[in-house]
């Protein structure tokens, strides 16, 4: 599915990713944890092709295709989806209009038939319901005046509409109340299948009780410093990250 080899990247002349390796097979869920500023969001942004994030070495292939040379919109059409840690607002552009443009373009690229307005609206309402957002949110500007939790659920709703093959969720759980957390987890679980993979960035072991990962990685100082099964998350919760840095430094 996605193979990341020795990935190095910098932002504003600062090296952030310093030789990151990660392999994710189809159908797998990988959780990434790690201290603030470690480079977790940077990884998502680099994979998605955010401007100003400069790749200085290494490679990333999605289904055998080098994605680092593609424009961000092309990567999206290849099935890469990034749920943002901080979703931005686009005032004046309705959520519905935005979704339609997005779904149309992604489906077209993937050779799927365009949805007519009726089908589309029906689907959009369904997905809103699935993430517990009132359908009236479709008429509002993209994220305009949405609460923190509503923004996160809106991201998830978009993900459901687009049916990507690689989903990167960047702290989609932060700022969610307990019920919303469950709603999001259920949404993700419902989308799990053998052809779709997930990178779930989180600070909280709690989310992983709901979305049970196949692997847990620790990202620190621009690299994956430790990988393990879901029990690693429990260990991290107990011990924090300090011991890893020591372990790493010693290695």
């Amino acid at each position: 599915m996605i193979e990341i080899k020795n990935l190095q990247a910098k932002v504003e002349d600062k090296d952030i990713l310093k030789g990151l390796n990660l392999n994710i097979g189809p159908g797998e869920v990988h959780a990434i944890m790690g201290p603030n500023g470690a480079g977790k969001s940077t990884l998502g942004n680099v994979l998605a092709g955010r401007p100003n994030y400069e790749v200085t070495g290494g490679s990333a292939t999605l289904n055998g295709k080098n994605i680092l040379d593609l424009d961000p919109e092309e990567r999206a059409r290849e099935g890469l989806f990034l749920a943002f840690q901080y979703p931005v607002e686009i005032p004046g552009v309705s959520n519905l209009e935005f979704l339609k443009a997005s779904v149309d373009s992604v489906r077209e690229q993937q050779g799927k038939k365009a949805l007519d307005s009726v089908q589309f609206l029906k689907l959009a309402r369904e997905k809103c319901k699935a993430v517990n957002l009132d359908a009236s949110f479709l008429k509002r500007g993209v994220n305009e005046g949405f609460s923190g939790g509503e923004k996160k659920r809106n991201e998830l709703m978009q993900m459901m509409m687009l049916e990507p093959t690689l989903c990167i969720l960047d702290e989609t759980d932060s700022g969610l109340d307990i019920d919303a957390l469950q709603v999001v987890a259920e949404g993700v679980n419902a989308m799990r299948d053998e052809n779709r993979s997930f990178i779930v960035v989180t600070h909280y072991q709690r989310l992983l009780d709901y979305i049970v990962p196949d692997f847990v990685h620790v990202l620190a100082n621009g690299k994956i410093v430790k990988s393990g099964g879901k029990e690693l998350a429990l260990e991290l919760e107990e011990k924090g990250y300090g011991w890893l840095e020591n372990e790493n430094g010693a290695a």
Binding site: P51, P72, I90, A101, S102
Partner: peptide
């Protein structure tokens, strides 16, 4: 007074919408 930010454009692109279409959507919304 507002601008079209790089972040807004990136959100659109990440959702498969190219920059031209994104700008036109934002301007039309405005």
């Amino acid at each position: 007074t507002s601008t079209v930010s790089d972040d807004q454009l990136f959100l659109c692109q990440q959702r498969g919408i190219d920059t031209e279409k994104a700008v036109s959507m934002i301007v039309n919304g405005f």
